[in-house]
Design a protein around this nucleic acid. Sequence first.
DNA 1: TTGTATGCGTTATCAT
DNA 2: ATGATAACGCATACAA
Lengths: 361, 361
Amino acid sequence: MKKNKILPAEENSGPLMADVADLAGVAISTVSRALANPGRVNAKTRAKIAAAAEKLGYTPNAMARNLRIGKSNIIMIVLPGSLHHGASQIIPQVLQSINQALIQNGYNLMIANLDRDETSERHILNLAFGGTVRGAIILSSKLPEVAGRSLAEAGLPIVSLLLDMSDASVPSVVTNDRGAVAEAARMLIARGHERFFYIAGPSDNYHDIERFSGLVDAFHETGLDPASITRSGGVLSYQHGFEAGKHAVEDFTQLAVKPTAVIAESDDMAISFISGVQARGWRIPEDLSVISFDGSPVCEYCHPPLSTIEQPVEVMGKTAVEILMQRMSEGADEVPTRMIIPSRLIMRKSVGPAAKANNSC
Amino acid sequence: MKKNKILPAEENSGPLMADVADLAGVAISTVSRALANPGRVNAKTRAKIAAAAEKLGYTPNAMARNLRIGKSNIIMIVLPGSLHHGASQIIPQVLQSINQALIQNGYNLMIANLDRDETSERHILNLAFGGTVRGAIILSSKLPEVAGRSLAEAGLPIVSLLLDMSDASVPSVVTNDRGAVAEAARMLIARGHERFFYIAGPSDNYHDIERFSGLVDAFHETGLDPASITRSGGVLSYQHGFEAGKHAVEDFTQLAVKPTAVIAESDDMAISFISGVQARGWRIPEDLSVISFDGSPVCEYCHPPLSTIEQPVEVMGKTAVEILMQRMSEGADEVPTRMIIPSRLIMRKSVGPAAKANNSC
DNA sequence: TTGTATGCGTTATCAT
DNA sequence: ATGATAACGCATACAA
């Protein structure tokens, strides 16, 4: 039984269910039930089967099972290539939390990279349409789509993480980007800051829009003129947030009237920006207060320790998985289309009162 | 053809090979050939088939294919839970490079977390013995093993990355840890440093042993007494390298005679260590020179910019995949058991000449 | 409660 | 060069 007559041969592929059945002296279907539906088989035979399986070191073949039941147990996470660099500080945590939650539900996590080339899009679509994956969690602002085929039509549940795609009817798990920035900005304004410098990631990206809007909101609320907000960045091609921060230093240097507060879209941007302006003689927070986004662990050890808006990635990841599970089990589409997990502002020494006149240097 | 009579029904699972065959007016086996082995089918029929497939938007079912050929096209990467925190700065790059290389070879990447509990070990073993994955790249110092079943016996190719497991006959891709640290140490010694402080990760880990040995080597070569090396760390339970660095600050503070040079096993450790000692009045590099390991991008923006031994993770990742591919194709086991990819010392301002007497503070 | 038989979607063997 | 057919390993409808 162990070895088949006709086909591949190749490497020994381990004991089969049939082997277990033989050894236990029962039919193969009984083994199948004993494993999947223990309640519906006699305790005695169940014991025999368990013993046989144990003795043979039997492990069910997942591919065969999945093919038979017509479902895969693999979920893919779609990471834009840029994320590996951009918000890279939090990616490991995201993967970790998602994977843990998935495994608890009997699923596995596959990584899919979405770059700007058609090849990667096609690859992802094949994963979806070819039945390799059962669902997707995406960290990209657009769904892969090529030759008229879109991930949206693949018939599998999708959840967007970090970016709100509920407009495109993709359930999304996000943080309160806009409100969190507004809150941080209000706090800065309360400390006397009136001129802001905003370091943006790729323009028109959800994060850019929401977070910048939050800043503008705070200005409106407090009666300040949003005209005194200077934007920097918005370039798509940066590999790292670090580069954006570096470039922002140039922009900042050329300003006739210097802002006293900086809000950066990611910790990386803030870190390299701070490094750059400090090298040119500005002091943080005496001359310039800085707050960024992400809550990377490294912020605590920056010079000075960096205030950051912490994204609750653990919770967000688990929530994304929960929603995915709901979409997959309950046939219904009655699941939330947008979950907002509040972020937390971690105040550190990079923030101080506004300097009176700091156009030195 | 599209819908079958008896079974699941469920969601529409897309066009099948049979549908393509029908539309093209050929047998199903011909379609299979046309797709897999284009050379062995008439150009005309091939065109018909291609047209039909195109029109239907046909995507081959991967699970069925893999089951049939008895091979999965999924490779798993085994990440110790600690790595998500410890050396986390480089994990995204590792994943990125490995995934790219895999996809070029027609494989996909699955993530597997190896924690310290038996559950995660069992899970990984099931992935292996259940045929879900075809091979593994591990970043863990030990192979999952439970109830006598070990990953080593799963009959699938394994490559170790970052850690040398060639002793356990697992082909390994590593960097020249020992030599790189020795070189860095020699350079420091040439600058007058004679008392070193070494911040270690988990004790007896490969990295700890190799890198510390490198430091000792340099001392021997230059006729210095290794007794003037102080070790700190070696604690297993730290979640972040940051914590190790923090703790090292305590150790450092209590030393009667202060070292003038520090070597840390990871950038994270160095970053939090520097932050801590600076807060207590020490100056880098005037009082203390620091070099660490990993080459995290953030080092460039530290205060002062941090010298680091860059691990060539991109090359290492690609190399690991290459070795895996060799193991899988050429039946032979005649593949290298250890590949050493040299690292590069990036010198930055965290290093200076030894202070004459810096036991101030 | 257990056994028999069929099919999941594909590849590969054998004829034609 | 193409077509009919039997597996791959498992799960389920149905009969016993």
